[in-house]
Each structure stands twice: as structure tokens, then as C-alpha cells.
């Protein structure tokens, strides 16, 4: 009998938040000391790697993304944040045309990689995907040896010499901070690695193609905190050489690893900018509500 008033009290709209969202403690993701994060000025000066202009994306008749314009700077980490189903993963998969695998998808507007149209009919998808590597939410090691996993890309690119392949495998595994753990067992099955190791293996496998850009679709959401921290450290190191775009559910993670952040809601790019500015002083109420945890 005592439960009724309590329930009523809980669902009363809070006076401050947007109506309909339950009241929750306001926690602003903390920005790390910032010594390794690029400032807004640096972002503005960085070369534009990918440029998106008025892009819309359709699954058959349903528009999943609406009029998105965004500039992705070179050698920076750009994070896409937003609630589930907001289109951030779909947007990420536009860059390497992974959505082509789904029938009935359509893109309007432009996505330019260093000034070249990604969705041009003259674009070679294989070349595009070699320049834009991708790491998925669920680690996807092939049921092969560690060596064969990492050398997969170079092998299909036509590199046959064992010595060259070994060099690429070693360099890629070192860059993904996995070399020391696996150097004595390169011929073991990749399925024997732990979850975090498998994900770093997938990063190494993407790096072995020598891409400029690395797309990461929630790369740490299935990992424990220690493995997550390793992946985040890795992202920090990799951004010196690679342009990284990461989709994440975890706002703390976006605050920790990204230089630029873009907030999506219902297929619309609500706000984007330097991570520090976006998290400390968002311009839009929706962004404020999301990053303080009032919804999403």
C-alpha cells in the first residue's frame, strides 16, 4: 500500500529538465587534464581529412541520417556520441561504404576523402577500404592463426614473401601493443586470445593494411575496464599517425579519448566541436541533457 505515493513522486516531471525525462543526478563527464588532447585552435588548424556536406542516408524509404555536414581533421580523434538508434554507427559505416552490403541503402550529398568523392561511381571500394580501416564492436578474429589474421590484408593485396609479411605482422602488432604478448605464439589460433587481446588483434589487422583512417565502432563496449583502458591508451598513441573516428556509448570514454566530438540525435547532427568545449559548454539544450545523463 505504501508504494503508490512513492511511484507517483518518482514520475513527477522535474522542474528543470526537459519534460518526460526522469530526474537523474547531473554528472558532467570529467575532461582529463588535457595535456594530450588537442585544443580547439589545433583542431581548427589541422588539415581536413574527411569532409561531409549535406549528407542524408536512406534505408529504402526510411531516412536514417538527415543533412549532415561535418569536417573530420587529420590525426585527431573524432567521437560520435548519442543514444542507441541515433544513426552514429550508420554514419560511421558510410565512410568505408560498409552500408553497400545492405540492399536498398542510398546516400545523398557528398562525403569527400581528401577532396575525392567516396560515393562516386568511379571509386574503387577495395582501395577505399584499404585506406579506411575498421574495428567492430564485437571482436571478429578469423578462425585462423594470429599471423594469418594480421597478414590477411597484405596477402590479398598480393604480398607473398614470408619475410615481408612477417615484417608487416610484427610492425602492426607492435603498433597495437599486442606484440609482446603474442610474439612467441604467432601460429596459435587467434580464438585462444582473451577478449581484449582479440580486439587489439583486430586493430593490428586493420593497421596491417597501412590505412590513413581508422573507424572504430564501439571498440571497447564488450571489454572489461582494464582492457578498455588499454584500448583507450592505444587510441591516444595511434592518433599521432592515424585519423581516428570512434563511435561510443560511453560519454566518459568520449571525453577521455577524443579531440572532437559530434552529438547525434534521431539521425540529426545536433552539435559538434572540440570535445572540451562540447562537454563543458554545450550550445544546445539536447546536448546538455544527453551529456549530463538526463536521457540516452
Amino acid at each position: 500500500m505504501a508504494s503508490t505515493p512513492l511511484v507517483k513522486k518518482m514520475i513527477q516531471p522535474s522542474d528543470k529538465a526537459t519534460s518526460g525525462f526522469s530526474k537523474a543526478p547531473i554528472v558532467r563527464p570529467s575532461i582529463p587534464s588535457g595535456k594530450r588532447m588537442r585544443t580547439a585552435d589545433e583542431l581548427a588548424q589541422a588539415t581536413e581529412k574527411i569532409s561531409v556536406r549535406d549528407m542524408s542516408f536512406y534505408y529504402s524509404e526510411n531516412r536514417a541520417l538527415t543533412d549532415i555536414s561535418l569536417s573530420i581533421p587529420e590525426c585527431c580523434v573524432t567521437a560520435f556520441i548519442g543514444p542507441s538508434g541515433c544513426g552514429k554507427s550508420t554514419f560511421l559505416r558510410c565512410f568505408n561504404r560498409m552500408n553497400d552490403m545492405i540492399e536498398g541503402t542510398r546516400v545523398e550529398g557528398e562525403i569527400l576523402l581528401e577532396g575525392q568523392e567516396i560515393y562516386s561511381s568511379r571509386t574503387d571500394i577495395v582501395t577505399l577500404r584499404k585506406r579506411i580501416g575498421m574495428v567492430f564492436q564485437k571482436s571478429t578474429p578469423f578462425p585462423k592463426s594470429i599471423f594469418d589474421n594480421v597478414s590477411f590484408g597484405p596477402k590479398i593485396a598480393g604480398i607473398r614473401k614470408k619475410k615481408d609479411l612477417y615484417e608487416i605482422v610484427e610492425r602492426s602488432l607492435q603498433r597495437s601493443a599486442l606484440w609482446d604478448e603474442v610474439k612467441d605464439r604467432l601460429n596459435e589460433s587467434a580464438l585462444n586470445l582473451s577478449g581484449g587481446q582479440q580486439q587489439r588483434l583486430c586493430i593490428a589487422r586493420a593497421l596491417a593494411n597501412d590505412p590513413d583512417i581508422l573507424l572504430m565502432d564501439e571498440p571497447a563496449s564488450a571489454l572489461d575496464p582494464a582492457s578498455t583502458a588499454r584500448i583507450e591508451d592505444l587510441i591516444f598513441e595511434l592518433k599521432e599517425q592515424y585519423t581516428i573516428v570512434i563511435v561510443t556509448h560511453n560519454m566518459q570514454q568520449a571525453a577521455r579519448v577524443s579531440d572532437q566530438a559530434a552529438f547525434f540525435y534521431q539521425g540529426v547532427l545536433v552539435e559538434s566541436g572540440a570535445t572540451e568545449a562540447l562537454f563543458t559548454n554545450p550550445q544546445k539544450q539536447q546536448t546538455e541533457d544527453y551529456i549530463t545523463g538526463r536521457f540516452g
Partner: peptide
């Protein structure tokens, strides 16, 4: 799993590969 096919496509493999 479909994810294995996706991962291979993302590495620049064609359908036959």
C-alpha cells in the same frame, strides 16, 4: 557469423576472397 564476412570486407577483400 556475418560479422566475420563484414570484417573481411572491411579489410578490402572482394566477395570471392
Amino acid at each position: 557469423p556475418l560479422s566475420l564476412r563484414g570484417a573481411a570486407f572491411a579489410l578490402g577483400a572482394n566477395k570471392f576472397e
